[in-house]
């Protein structure tokens, strides 16, 4: 589903930084890949490169066979197939919850208003906040907002969902409700790439865990291998620090 080969990314502001060093990753359809690593390790950058929110200067990325880095690629089409859930939710504050979910369905997927509303209500039901469909996002708790954001991504029927630290901005008691939604999605066979610090989630749900440090992928393996006997020294240090 996703094939990323030797992705390199540089930032020049404020000073030159080699943010991604030959990162390669293959995600099969239906697979859940969790990326962990210390802050500044490039995991969010890598995720953002996958749907070109950041443009990787070198390397190759394809999603469902479509080349992401090809300047001629229809990036809007690729992004519509690649849902993204942000750390800070990024719901549209001037729209209601329902409009947040129907907007792109109508303008990008060209669905009728009724189709879009039906789909949105179905998804809100699924994430457990159907009764809040008419309120403004600012009236919702963080956990509820993040669930709306997931529903908004799902409404596009994406082939892949990317999660950029979806629970990092949440109060501890709300983390569970968002992770539950993500677990259900994983069970239903959604292809997911998740950047997170939730080791419990990684252990329980991930098919594969990837450890990144200093812009490079250091270690890759099943959660079992990862959390019981990591090979790399840096992985061991990181896991010791947070577990």
């Amino acid at each position: 589903m996703i094939v990323a080969t030797n992705v390199n990314k540089y930032f020049y502001v404020p000073e030159e930084l080699h943010a991604l060093k030959d990162a390669s990753l293959t995600v099969a359809s239906g697979e859940v890949v969790v990326i962990i690593g210390p802050s500044g390790s490039g995991k969010s950058t890598f995720l953002r490169c996958l749907n070109r929110l950041e443009y990787a200067e070198k390397g190759e990325i394809t999603i469902d066979g479509m080349s992401v880095l090809d300047p001629k690629a229809d990036i809007n089409k690729i992004r519509a197939e690649t849902g993204m859930v942000f750390q800070s939710f990024n719901l549209f504050p001037h729209k209601t919850v329902l409009e947040n979910i129907t907007m792109a369905q109508i303008s990008v997927r060209k669905r009728s208003k009724k189709e879009a509303v039906d789909k949105a209500m179905m998804l809100l039901e699924k994430v457990g906040i159907a009764e809040k469909h008419h309120v403004s996002p600012s009236k919702l708790s963080g956990g509820q907002q993040q669930r709306v954001a997931i529903a908004r991504s799902l409404a596009m029927d994406p082939k892949v969902l990317l999660f950029d630290e979806p629970t990092s901005a949440l109060d501890p008691e709300m983390v569970g409700e968002v992770l539950d939604v993500m677990k259900n999605l994983a069970k239903e066979g959604m292809t997911m790439v998740v950047v997170t610090h939730e080791m419990g989630f990684a252990r329980e749900v991930a098919d594969r865990v990837i450890f990144m440090d200093d812009g490079a992928i250091i270690e890759e393996g099943t959660p079992e291998h990862f959390f019981t006997n990591p090979e790399n020294e840096r992985t061991q240090t990181f896991l010791n620090q947070i577990l």
Partner: peptide, 29 residues
């Protein structure tokens, strides 16, 4: 916030669509 543009674009909206439907209404108010 730039996150608004990123969210709109990551849903597959074009620049002008995102500008007109997401950024501009918030900016104007």
């Amino acid at each position: 916030h730039t996150g608004q543009m990123e969210a709109a674009r990551s849903l597959g909206m074009s620049y002008s669509e995102a500008m007109g439907k997401v950024i501009m209404p918030q900016a104007i108010s």
